[in-house]
Design a protein around this nucleic acid. Structure first.
Length: 255
DNA sequence: ATGGCTTGAGTGTCAAGA
């Protein structure tokens, strides 16, 4: 089973890239973030023609998350239960016996800002909910745009980013909090080359210069981690015309 | 130099991203 995550930065703009990528990579499930559309603008038909069912927790202009899958998406759940939040950042479903939680974690803007406080509160709420979810679903994967570079090796210039948004210790503590629930960073289960990132700024020719961060992740519960045979970041869509600023991450599971 | 692009909103120009 191949599962993936991709922040598409507007599904309306990126639909051709998504369709091409689905056809080329053939994932069993793909989590999307920043669809930036309401359900009525969501391309259910085009995806169905490509062989994928979809569920969507949509929002106009900002946020919006979806899960696409070849098999049925069951036990669908939106948002973080009990956490009052108008922003559409979470959708979850079970596909082929695997619980998929698709998350668009807040950016946080700047350390110390109101949005940063919201990000930390949001991370605490997600952690609390996942602790319960993992009891119910031992085969659980958390996929998405975490807006956290977990370690210095996930940053093109760790000194410049030290203590900054996406790299601050409270954010990294929250990331480690996910691991302490009994999850593993799929990417780090394997030997990887250095300076592999999942996001590059649109400005300053950052992609060409590989000035990036690894902030998109797939975390696997222990039960899933033990059957994970590969994890990689696919840079190829970032090279296309009008790309998303994020690249997809793919994990492959046996069984 | 706190910018540099890109998107969605809406039709001038701003918020937000990371």
């Amino acid at each position: 089973m191949k599962i993936a995550t991709w922040n598409v930065n507007s599904l309306k703009v990126r639909l051709p890239h998504v369709l091409d990528w689905l056809s080329a990579v053939q994932p069993d499930a793909l989590c999307l973030q920043e669809t930036k559309t309401e359900d009525k603008g969501f391309p259910f038909e085009a995806l169905r023609s490509a062989g994928y069912q979809a569920i969507h927790n949509g929002q106009k202009t900002y946020n919006g998350v979806a899960i696409l899958a070849r098999s049925a998406l069951v036990k669908v759940s939106c948002d973080i239960p009990g956490f009052d939040d108008p922003q559409k950042r979470v959708i979850a479903a079970t596909v082929d016996g695997v619980r998929l939680v698709c998350a668009y974690i807040p950016n946080g803007q700047a350390v110390g800002s109101e949005k940063y406080a919201y990000k930390l509160k949001w991370l605490a709420a997600l952690t609390g909910w996942l602790r319960e979810e993992m009891q119910v679903y031992p085969k659980l994967a958390l996929l998405g745009d975490f807006n956290i570079a977990p370690e210095d090796r996930d940053v093109h210039d760790p000194k410049a980013w030290q203590g900054q948004i996406l790299c601050s210790e409270p954010e990294r503590d929250a990331f480690r909090g996910f691991l302490e629930l009994g999850m593993a960073d799929a990417f780090r289960l394997f030997d990887q080359p250095e300076k592999i990132f999942s996001w590059w700024d649109y400005r300053m020719m950052a992609f060409r210069r590989n000035i990036g961060l690894r902030i998109d992740h797939i975390l696997l519960s222990n039960e899933l981690a033990s059957c994970c045979i590969a994890c990689r970041i696919d840079k190829s869509p970032r090279k296309l015309e009008r790309p998303s600023d994020h690249a997809p991450v793919i994990a492959e599971l046996t069984s």
